[in-house]
Simulated assay, not measured.
Amino acid sequence: MSRLVYVLNGPNLNLLGKRQPHIYGHETLTDVERDCRALAAELGLEIRFHQSNREYELIDWIHEARETAGGIVINPGAFTHTSVAILDALNAFDGTVIEVHISNVHKREEFRHHSFVSKRADGVMAGFGTQGYQLALRRVARLLDDSKASS
């Protein structure tokens, strides 16, 4: 199984560190990417890190991952609550999918409690701040290691 992991970020995550820092913290998406790359190197993972405010781009990256990746870590942002299209794309991906949310969506507005992505995700990280990305990468690495050992 490939040790390539796509780390995908949805709408408004380009504003991380500037938008509602009382909810999302002061770290930027550049900080998150730096930390993910450093941890991936430790874990023997290769990552492709992307962000888009456009649903179709996230879907295109998920389709691309089908051909090459062992896992997807995805913070779909607001698409979490609205996108059947992203769910359908993830359902066509055979590797591990971990959903990440910086805030604890279950302590927020009622509409944030529903996730289409969770219907496909193998795990969900919510409320761990940006550290949730690192926890998700550790989980993907563990599952890849376990699948390698069992084959």
Rank of each mutant, 00 (worst) to 15 (best):
P21E: 13
H22S: 11
E27L: 08
R48C: 08
N14H: 14
A40V: 13
L45M: 02
L43N: 08
E33H: 06
N14Q: 14
I47F: 01
R37K: 15
Y56Q: 13
D31N: 15
A41G: 13
R48L: 13
N14E: 12
E42M: 05
L15K: 12
N14R: 14
H26D: 13
H22Y: 07
L29D: 03
E46R: 14
V32P: 03
P21C: 05
E46G: 05
H26G: 04
G25C: 04
Q20G: 03
G25Q: 01
K18E: 10
D31C: 03
E55L: 02
I23E: 05
T28Y: 05
L45T: 01
Q51L: 07
Q51G: 08
L16F: 03
I62L: 11
F49S: 10
H63T: 09
G25R: 01
L15W: 12
C36W: 04
D60M: 02
G17D: 15
R34D: 13
D35R: 14
Q20S: 13
A40W: 02
I59T: 02
I23Y: 02
N14I: 08
H26W: 04
E42D: 14
Y24K: 08
A40D: 05
N53L: 03
Y24C: 07
K18G: 03
D31Y: 02
E42V: 09
H50A: 13
E57Y: 06
R37H: 06
A40K: 14
L45S: 00
R37M: 11
E42F: 02
I62R: 07
E46W: 04
L29E: 02
E27M: 08
G17A: 13
I59S: 00
R34I: 06
E55C: 06
E57T: 06
L13T: 08
L13S: 04
V32K: 08
R48T: 09
G25Y: 01
N53D: 12
L15C: 09
T28M: 09
R34W: 02
E55V: 01
L16W: 07
N53G: 09
E57M: 04
A40G: 15
E57R: 06
G44T: 09
R37Q: 14
